[in-house]
């Protein structure tokens, strides 16, 4: 009987020892705060939360560089953070705000410099990019602009902090200026004309470069119209910066086709089918052939718009 009791006691002792050992091991090995709110270390949440932010945000930049920030903020690129191009500013801010700097001047320099790639990260032409986003093929862009040096940097023509404005003279750069709407920068239509505002960035008009043609145009019957009524500007595709001519006959007929609701006195009107039938024998074409021709009206009536001789002589851009 006594011998059996010893056996049992041994087992109980071993189990108790294991239990105590286990508890002791758990107490020693289980990290502090583990299991307090879940099956994890609660302190870890606060450790990760306490990391210092690296990117400082545009407000931090604006505290010292208010002028550049204001410039950038009204550009179409206002959504591009300063640190997107210049790199994170944590060391820079620390160096310039601490009384006794712990960060050396060298470390505090903003790390990223301008590269051509920098602009092309967003603006290189790719099939996957939304078509309404401005994008270029650099080779095409240079070819179009007659730029021979492929290391030419975007910022040599486009102002870095407000790239929709051009630094170069349009005529020299051979970039077709973007036609700005006031609303691009302002909320709603401004009260004053931009020419009356001192220090307003230059807005290019057609006349600045195409003086002879614009002046000639004004002597013709269509002088009351805007250039852009016929010359369409395509802003956001691969031809960004190009102006198209709208020479389609249907466009002319929007005003000149005889319709009962139109004022016959104000606008000369024709019945196009009758007019084409009348002209067909002279042109040695059928009326259908004429109407399918893309420049059906302008082939004959070009001089009603502006002097064709001027165009034939190649006087397109005439500002030096």
């Amino acid at each position: 009987m006594m011998t059996h009791a010893t056996h049992v006691l041994r087992v109980v002792l071993v189990v108790a020892a294991l239990g105590v050992g286990g508890l002791a091991a758990q107490r020693l090995l289980k990290p502090a705060s583990f299991g307090e709110v879940g099956h994890y270390r609660k302190d870890s949440v606060y450790e990760i939360m306490s990391h210092e932010p690296v990117h400082q945000g545009r407000e931090a930049c604006a505290e010292c560089h208010e002028d550049i920030h204001a410039l950038h903020d009204k550009d179409i690129h206002y959504g591009v953070e300063c640190e997107d191009c210049h790199g994170p500013g944590n060391l820079h801010v620390r160096h310039h705000t601490e009384d006794t700097p712990t960060v050396s001047e060298e470390e505090a320099l903003m790390p990223m410099e301008y590269t051509l790639e920098g602009c092309l990260f967003c603006h290189r032409k790719l099939a996957a990019r939304p078509t309404n986003f401005p994008q270029i093929d650099p080779t095409e862009h240079y070819k179009f602009l007659h730029v021979t040096d492929n290391t030419t940097r975007c910022i040599e023509c486009h102002s870095p902090h407000e790239p929709i404005y051009l630094l170069a003279k349009v005529n020299e750069a051979r970039i077709h200026p973007v036609i700005h709407q006031c609303e691009d920068c302002h909320d709603g239509k401004p009260e004053k004309d931009h020419r009356e505002v001192e220090g307003h960035p230059v807005i290019f008009t057609c006349r600045d470069c195409h003086k002879a043609i614009v002046e000639d145009f004004e002597t013709h019957e269509h002088a009351f119209m805007d250039c852009t009524a016929c010359h369409l500007f395509h802003a956001e595709n691969e031809n960004a910066g190009r102006i198209f001519k709208n020479g389609n006959g249907k466009f002319c007929l929007l005003c000149h086709e005889k319709k009962p609701f139109k004022d016959g006195e104000a606008v000369p009107q024709i019945v196009s089918s009758e007019h084409l039938a009348e002209m067909a024998p002279d042109l040695n074409m059928t009326p259908e052939e004429i109407s399918h021709h893309s420049r059906a009206c302008l082939d004959c009536h070009f001089d009603f718009i502006h002097d064709s001789e001027l165009i034939k002589k190649g006087v397109i851009v005439d500002v030096q």
């Binding site: 990760i48 939360m49 306490s50 990391h51 210092e52 932010p53 690296v54 990117h55 945000g57 690129h77 959504g79 591009v80 953070e81 640190e83 997107d84 967003c122």
Partner: peptide
């Protein structure tokens, strides 16, 4: 996590133009 509880946005949200 170190930014969102300081009232900032995640770095990628801020960086997206």
């Amino acid at each position: 996590y170190h930014r969102i509880h300081k009232g900032l946005s995640p770095a990628c949200v801020d960086a997206c133009p």
